[in-house]
Amino acid sequence: MAGLSLIGEYSSDSEDEKLSSKKEENQRYNAGKRLPLPQSIKTWKGVDHHTEVTDDPSQHEGKIRSFKHERGTWATLVYILYKPSETLLSWMNLIRTHHSIEDGKIFEEFHVSLTRTVPLKFHWIDSFVEGVKKISENSNQFAMELTDVKVYCNDNKTRTFLGICCENDEALNDLTEALNKLLNEYLLPRFYEEASHHVSFLWCLDNQEERLKVKLPSLSSSLRNFIAENPQESYVQVQELHCKVGNRLYTFNLR
């Protein structure tokens, strides 16, 4: 009986070793296989793993990115969407010819930025978007007034813009400050210290500030005349915020 017991123990040990060996073999096999990328992630506009992206301004009308592509990050912006009337669009296009800015290009979409364009890590997206949603739910709808024209230049001086200033300091500044606090949680850059909220409508390559600033008195006068003739264009009702992350757009209603 003792001999049978020893044989049983030996047999059991051998089976355990075989199972352990098979398990280790399967683990090594599975470790060498890559899981397929989820379809939900494939729809995001980002940089593929191990892919080096070279910025080519010739593919983007000469525009240069404010920061390089980084694996696992998405360009993110919070803003107020603005849809000008056909009448105002006509005025914008007349500005180019009447004020000798033929090299300027009119934007296809218009907005009022409430943050800089910042690089957001993929694993931060859900919580950041939730933060923007909460800010929207705690903010009232408001109206902003279109006033005069100003010149703006981006941080690296590669593009210059003409923008229509938007005034409602209390509401716009409150939104900007709330978003600045959210950005701080992710160690992302705040909005400009001397915020000048505006709708950019025309852009030129390179630093054209000096050239365009000379035209500001006549440009602002032209805008004021336009608004006097079209008073319905002077105010914009703000009812929602937009947050763009990569190629995804989130829209949140103000209360």
Score class of each variant (00 low, 15 high):
Lys42Thr: 00
Asn156Tyr: 06
Gln237Ser: 14
Glu233Phe: 00
Leu241Asp: 06
Tyr152Gln: 08
Phe142Val: 07
Ser136His: 06
Lys244Trp: 09
Leu219Phe: 03
Gln232Pro: 11
Leu88Gln: 00
Leu162Gln: 10
Asn230Tyr: 11
Leu89Lys: 00
Thr158Trp: 01
Ser12Ile: 09
Arg224Lys: 14
Leu223Glu: 05
Ser234Glu: 09
Asp56Ala: 14
Ala75Gly: 11
Glu61Arg: 05
His69Ser: 14
Glu170Phe: 07
Lys22Phe: 06
Ala171His: 08
Ala228Gln: 13
Leu77Lys: 11
Lys22Ala: 13
Asn168Glu: 02
Leu202Thr: 01
Phe161Ile: 02
Phe142Trp: 01
Gly32Asp: 10
Met144Ile: 01
Leu205His: 05
Arg34Met: 11
Glu194Lys: 13
Asn156His: 09
Asn247His: 04
His60Gly: 03
Leu175Arg: 03
Pro36Leu: 07
Gly3Asp: 14
Trp203Met: 02
Arg34Trp: 07
Ile41Asn: 03
Phe110Cys: 05
Glu193Lys: 15
Ser127Gln: 10
Asn26Pro: 01
Arg211Leu: 01
Gln27Asp: 14
Ser58Trp: 03
Ser221Met: 05
Cys153Asn: 07
Lys18Thr: 06
Cys243Gln: 04
Ile227Tyr: 02
Asn154Leu: 00
Ala75Phe: 05
Ala228Glu: 12
Asp174Pro: 05
Arg65Ile: 08
Thr117Ala: 15
Ile7Val: 12
Ser12Thr: 08
Arg116Cys: 00
Lys33Val: 10
Ser11Gly: 14
Gly8Ser: 12
Cys243Ile: 01
Glu167Asn: 05
Thr97His: 12
Leu212Lys: 09
Ser234Asp: 10
Glu9Gln: 13
Leu175Glu: 00
Asp48Phe: 02
Cys166Asp: 01
Arg224Trp: 05
Leu114Tyr: 07
Val132Met: 04
Ser113Met: 04
Gln27His: 11
